[in-house]
Design a protein around this nucleic acid. Structure first.
Lengths: 228, 228
DNA sequence: GGAATATTTCGGCCGGGAACGAATTATTGC
DNA sequence: GCAATAATTCGTTCCCGGCCGAAATATTCC
């Protein structure tokens, strides 16, 4: 028995460079059109359409039709987590040469990782929270402490969804540029949502990268003693 | 930028049915020889050798040479977790027909999942532990309570490794037969190890399946009020 | 030492699937 | 209605990679 065939089927879908590019782009958290996905995959729209059809058929992505556009996004957190875990394995593998570029620097500094913040900023936030004993992180999981819950509450972070589970857990998400964990899971998502609300961070057009606004600069300094 | 190419490379390795079978077999936790892997993949030894070479090159598996055999096992928990997460996505996808068989029933009942216990037994253990408030499980993570730590300690489970991290976290691992979580992570591994030590469970030859011994039947009833 | 077994390397066959061009169908804006 | 854009379908080409047969190498057993 074993469900190996099913695993192989999903993995094969992710195993094509074009489709992998699409999925990674969608890992930014925003919904993208078929044409945009074709662009990131570096293929013609026809080819992209075929790829999207397969991803859609396996429920890796879902699409909503809006006029003559069709917007696609990852089906859910489980897909994002799968991509993360594959990334972790890739990071653990033999080192490979990685050329740098300007866009990279922007991405390296701050970006979205599905629904939370990654990059130098994400890692720094995590370390500040750990330093002040607001969050405890293990290998597999993390927990928000009582004082941490209070701190986040003061910041206006809505933990009600996470609280519904009686305990507030968060998931460490290994950062592929920093190679150190940052805050993911429900807590990471809530924190990121609040940062967007406060207009501390903004998305960069056509990218997963984030910019810190002047207000964000002040806020991060005030609440996290973080200078950017 | 993006690390999509690296993700695609790893995913493509898992995306071949033969290699996926090998990895799933290794998910049983035991080291297997190249010939055994060839058998589970349903290919000739030459072909298997090629597959193994690729898996080894990407550090998905590591091999130790013992005489004229070479034993392979998964490189680490991160590989097991990647396979799990792919499995989760496959489970979330469109339902597919799954033929039953006798071996399946055995597997369905109890089996190893890398380093912990899965199947009906694994899920039942998890539910008993949760019921008595020994463990709290969220979507992303779980935690051992104080009373739970005491209970496990009385059972002789060695939590020192998990304790070294100040908090005892465990990871819920979605069971692909039961579709309900069971106890994974460091805690699940320690619990499984203890069950083997106590000879409550034994591996079935050439399979991931487990059998519950008479001693196990008694022990599970006494400690977990579980009748098998 | 010689037979048996485990594993790997090489070479050639073959199929699946990724790619694009051309054409078709929807939707928007004027 | 008509042009422009978005998206899909069909048909064809072509290459990558899985597969096995044959043979080489290594190790154990007798």
């Amino acid at each position: 028995m074993s469900n190996a065939p099913q695993i192989a089927e999903i993995a094969a879908l992710v195993g094509d460079p074009g489709r992998a590019n699409m999925l990674c782009a969608l890992l930014g958290g925003r919904a993208l059109t078929a044409t945009e996905l074709a662009f990131v995959a570096g293929v013609t729209p026809q080819t992209a359409s075929g790829h999207i059809g397969k991803l859609h058929g396996a429920r890796l992505v879902v699409g909503v039709k809006q006029g003559r556009h069709r917007y696609f996004r990852l089906t859910g957190p489980h897909v994002a987590q799968m991509l993360e875990s594959i990334m972790n394995v890739a990071l653990a593998g033999p080192q490979r040469f990685q050329p740098k570029s300007k866009v990279d620097d922007q991405m390296r500094h701050a970006r979205t990782c599905y629904d939370h913040i990654a990059g130098v900023l994400g890692v720094a936030l995590a370390e500040k929270l750990i330093e002040r004993n607001f969050i405890v992180l293990g290998d597999d999981a993390g927990e928000v402490t009582e004082s941490g819950a209070e701190f986040l509450s003061n910041l206006g972070v809505d933990l009600s969804a996470a609280l519904a589970k009686r305990r507030i857990f968060c998931r460490p998400c290994l950062d592929w540029t920093e190679r150190r964990p940052h805050i993911g899971g429900a807590v990471g998502a809530a924190l990121a949502r609040r940062c967007f609300e406060l207009k501390w961070i903004e998305r960069v057009r056509d990218s997963r990268a984030l910019t810190v606004t002047p207000a964000g600069r002040d806020g991060l300094m005030e609440f996290f003693a973080l200078s950017v």
